[in-house]
Amino acid sequence: MYRILKAEELAANIYLMDVEAPRVAHSCQPGQFVIVRMDEAGERIPLTICDYDREKGTITIVFQVVGAATEMMRHLKTGDSFHDFVGPLGCPSEFVHEEEASLKNKRILFVAGGLGTAPVYPQVKWLHERGIDADVIVGAKTKDLLIMEEEMKAVAGNLYVTTDDGSYGRSGMVTKVIEDLIESEGKSYDVCVAIGPMIMMKFVCLTTKKYELPTIVSVNPIMVDGTGMCGACRLTVDGEVKFACVDGPEFDGHKVDFDQAMKRQQMYKTKEGRDYLKAKEGDTHHGGCGNC
């Protein structure tokens, strides 16, 4: 059993938990993920690693309520346990293997959308700890859905917050901020890392393509075992079939077939599930978020 040491609601429907998982905390790196199961009958749910504490042996996870399983999960409290907690899965971010000297000369732009802020955080933090300051764009639908602003501010070089409805920070989509930074604010970058809903990553890639800015994305497809066995998480990258769990989850965003990947995410979505989301999110929900 994997004990929950802290559980809190970060924003509406977005929850953070610190979980005791010494083996995972010992070996995880930015870019990797975990799979959890609540109980004997539970689904295997892939989740983002948002932070880790090697000494305490804990992993911080952040999740959004998007269906039956996460709806149940949000009721877990401090002192409760996960039945299973396995990881780290997937490959670490590429920069983890890069020479620090060459990394220091790189201008890196992170683009985080919604819940994507959580997996971006450990990457920016890792770089910050090595004296590398990266620029970070964080986008949220509205002010109330913005998460981890303070934490991100502490580790980012420059932090640019934007909301779709203009209720906080800049106004508009993250793609607009990318354009503004590059075209009117004199910024230039060597690499972009974008993590968020599929639809956001798709449009970030279309934007960065214009500037020939290499872009890495982190995908979160349907998964069962997470170790390469089932092939449910396959996607097409540069015309080749790749498994997100062993080849990814990070890929060259300019080569990912996003339209196919978004379709494949709908495989087990039911009408009930979509109605649930519509009821929760109302008119602001237009589909394509990767959760519907």
Binding site: R23, V24, H26, S27, Q32, D84, F85, V86, G87, P88, L89, T227
Partner: peptide, 10 residues
């Protein structure tokens, strides 16, 4: 010991 992916967890 379940939930240990050798090559990843250790």
């Amino acid at each position: 010991e379940t939930n240990v992916v050798v090559g990843k967890s250790v």
